[in-house]
Nucleic acid binder design. Structure first.
Lengths: 151, 151
DNA sequence: CTTCATGCAAACCCTTTGCACGTCG
DNA sequence: CGACGTGCAAAGGGTTTGCATGAAG
């Protein structure tokens, strides 16, 4: 079968990362981690805040932003920029990769592709650049949304 | 020699694009175009506003945003997202391409690379994606900043 | 206990919008 | 003239911060 998409179903791994990095595992962070784990695709801070409100759990917006920032620094989640200019996050593995974002279901899959990196390095070289970093974001329809009938 | 970087030195081409698209060539737009032409690399709306203020010319912020939006639609400039999350713009040719941003001097060069696109399409395919769009941004040191002595 | 984290609300961006006035063609 | 564009100021989001209170280790 198709590889599973963002297989993290509970917040435990995120909390673990916090713990290992020496941060406290508090209730609000537990809740945020759980909310993130529940996301099927990219999400914004506002999405989490809305979910929190919908779930009757009270977490301050500030805490959400602070936790997202923290997890971002620890590379447990990554911030991506949608074409609309919105800032969104996706949870991901802490290895170098890129994201393919499904415009249909908003899920993301990690792209780890040596050839792609080679092509990038080559393109940079041709432009006379010493590439330090790069970001790639793909937008399209994922396998599942392609496979099923188009509504 | 190395290809010149963003060779637009005056605002005329931008105005021309506006004119051809049926928009009026007004004084404020002329000023914004000139400001953009003066930029050596990526710039934000705030940068232009600051330059305008410094140059003693009064343009409303709203006009700057509106003009940037307009030029963006006409593909005379393109919006890019810096790793910091800031929204910046770069002037560019209206063909499909990507940007390499120099982390030193902030200038950008357009990247048009068929192989790179092929690699992207291939990576998408492997992930089961039907790619609709993508964005790539390279960050590094440009030829000039590499060539000259590092300060 | 002592430090770290939270919540709240105010403060701060950045960007958009409504509207009366000005100006381009 | 008549439509289009501008400026201003206010509104609107999103994100950050200061500070007193509360929980974690």
């Amino acid at each position: 079968m198709r590889p599973s998409i963002n297989p993290r179903r509970d917040g435990a791994p995120l909390l673990e990362i916090l713990g290992r990095a020496g941060y406290r595992q508090t209730e609000p962070r537990r809740l945020v981690a759980a909310l993130i784990a529940r996301q099927t695709g990219h999400f914004t801070a506002a999405d989490l805040a809305r979910s929190a409100r919908a779930g009757e759990i009270g977490i301050g917006r500030a805490t959400i932003f602070r936790t997202l920032e923290l997890l971002g620094e620890l590379e447990a989640i990554e911030r991506i920029d949608l074409p609309t200019g919105e800032h969104a996050y996706v949870s991901c593995e802490p290895v170098h990769h890129h994201h393919a974002v499904c415009t249909e279901c908003h899920r993301t899959v990690d792209i780890v592709d040596a050839e792609l990196h080679a092509a990038i390095r080559e393109a940079a070289r041709r432009a006379g650049f010493t590439a330090e970093a790069h970001r790639i974001e793909l937008y399209g329809r994922c396998a599942e949304c392609n496979g099923s009938a188009t509504p």
